[in-house]
């Protein structure tokens, strides 16, 4: 209970800190938002009026508090370029990016865990070596290039999907998931390669621990030692990695969305960055921060479930 409170407090504090840093960065560096909204031919009195209206004359912290309160209430400001509420622009895109990241995450686990265990059990064998080689190359491929290769091979040559033929989740959920499969795979493969490598070495490391020998001395066979004793220990470092990987995947989906023309958060983020549409950029970054922090919280929880030593602290 005390732990939960502590975690939530730290969650809120980190979120405030990150959003303040983002807010401050956007408030200080880009110059005058009123100017950029009105254009250079605005008269000084127009500018002053707009500044007053936008509250730009008040201290930074007050403006931040104001902004944070309305953010929580669902008002994320107004887009400079589209003159629309930001919340309306991004809330229905959030599920797309999130689905993509979660699918990529699941694919990562589905690829890395069985292969990692297999490679560890057959350490030094031919398949282990083959996996090692494929792994090294996969880790070196930028996900977006993987996406381009997939578009070419699976989309244009094999015609398993229509490049650019995104299906909205609001009309056809299975079609939506099907379209996201290859983008998710492109994000997942490099991460899976890293997770696999980590799991393999972790399993091999744990196999050499004393407790594994104890388990054998009780009459466990190799499978029992692996699944009853080693795996839970071996997963501890992998969970940490997967948590960071999931955060990376949320960010990585921004690029992959461009490759596969998926109208998710990444798409709006890119247009807003090139258009200097700061309220949108700001809102998206804060949303991603929330996602990343939630992921961290979940990782922490999973960690406590599998490693009793953490629970004591």
């Amino acid at each position: 209970m005390k732990y939960a409170v502590q975690k939530i407090v730290s969650f809120v504090m980190t979120l405030c800190l990150v959003s303040f840093l983002v807010f401050a960065a956007f408030a200080v560096i880009p110059g005058d938002p009123a100017l950029s909204k009105l254009g250079t031919d605005a008269t000084p009195s127009q500018l002053a009026a707009l500044r007053e209206e936008m509250g730009l004359n008040r201290p930074l912290l007050v403006r931040f508090a104001d902004w944070a309160v309305s953010f929580v209430q669902g008002d994320m400001g107004t887009s400079y370029s589209y003159d629309r509420p930001v919340s309306g622009m991004i809330l229905d895109k959030l599920p797309i990016t999130l689905t993509l990241a979660v699918m990529a995450f699941l694919l990562t686990i589905m690829i890395a865990v069985p292969l990692g265990i297999y490679a560890a059990r057959h350490e030094g064998g031919k398949v282990d070596y083959l996996i090692y080689c494929i792994n090294q190359v996969t880790m070196a491929v930028p996900p977006f290039f993987l996406g381009i290769l997939m578009t070419f091979f699976f989309g244009l040559v094999l015609k398993w999907f229509t490049p650019g033929g995104y299906v909205s989740y609001q009309t056809d959920v299975p079609g939506f998931v099907r379209y996201l499969f290859f983008p998710a795979l492109a994000i997942a493969l490099p991460k899976a390669a890293m997770a696999l490598k980590l799991l393999r070495s972790s399993v091999i490391h744990e196999t050499r621990q004393d407790y594994a020998r104890t388990a054998y001395s009780r009459g466990n066979n190799t499978n029992q030692v692996l699944y009853r004793h080693i795996l839970k220990n071996a997963l501890i470092p992998v969970v940490t990695f997967l948590g960071m990987a999931l955060a990376d995947m949320i960010a990585g989906s921004i690029i992959i969305e461009q490759v596969f023309s998926i109208p998710g958060l990444g798409r709006i983020l890119m247009t807003s960055i090139s258009g200097r549409d700061y309220p949108v950029v700001q809102a998206i970054i804060v949303w991603i921060a929330v996602l990343v922090l939630v992921v961290n919280l979940i990782v922490d929880l999973v960690y406590r479930i599998i490693d009793p030593r953490i629970r004591m602290e």
């Binding site: 621990q209 004393d210 407790y211 104890t214 001395s217 004793h229 839970k232 220990n233 599998i306 009793p308």
Partner: peptide, 16 residues
């Protein structure tokens, strides 16, 4: 059955 030199590491850390 057998007992070992290192009681600190001979038990599985994540099992009761």
């Amino acid at each position: 059955s057998m007992i070992f030199q290192e009681p600190m590491t001979s038990l599985n850390p994540v099992r009761r």
